[in-house]
């Protein structure tokens, strides 16, 4: 019952067995070995599992892999090779925008998606659209600095 599927993740093709009911989060972590994407709540409340599908942020815990298997998927592992993703990573490094780091992949992927969609978004708009990402360490101040610095550098 697990038919093979072809996926396109971080600019390269993968071939894997894929049960119909499998979540994108589980496919990425356990079939493709891309464990940068984190499982936080698994109920759509925390944003830790955020990946980009066709350039738009989605919660991989609430997405069936089969529903998006024909689209380009970008995970935190692919950010360094992505021009926008790279600037986001640099901004987070610059401001040490993390504490334990568990929420970081979700934040940097979500922010990369936002900047791709709205390259000239203001810091306030970016912060508002990042409200779906939670940091259980409450390390928001350094994350905020990274986001604001990035937005200012781009405009």
């Amino acid at each position: 019952m697990t038919d093979p599927a072809a996926l396109w993740v971080n600019g390269r093709p993968y071939s894997t067995e894929l049960p119909d009911d499998e979540r994108l989060l589980d496919t990425l972590r356990w079939r493709l070995g891309l464990k940068g994407t984190k499982e936080g709540c698994r109920t759509g409340d925390c944003g830790a599992c955020t990946v980009l599908v066709d350039g738009r942020s989605v919660l991989s815990c609430l997405t069936l892999t089969r529903e998006v298997s024909e689209e380009a998927i970008l995970t935190v592992e692919g950010l360094e090779a992505d021009p926008v993703g790279r600037t986001v990573l640099e901004a987070f490094v610059q401001e040490a925008g993390l504490q334990c780091g568990y929420c970081t992949p979700g934040f940097v992927v979500a922010l990369t998606g936002l900047l791709k969609e709205r390259p000239n978004a203001s810091p306030e708009e970016l912060l508002e659209d990042l409200q779906g990402n939670l940091c259980r360490c409450t390390g928001y101040l350094s994350i905020r600095r990274a986001v604001v610095g990035l937005a200012k550098a781009r405009t």
Partner: peptide, 9 residues
């Protein structure tokens, strides 16, 4: 409704 990543789906 939810967060932006949820609203994309």
């Amino acid at each position: 409704v939810g967060g932006l990543a949820l609203r994309h789906r």
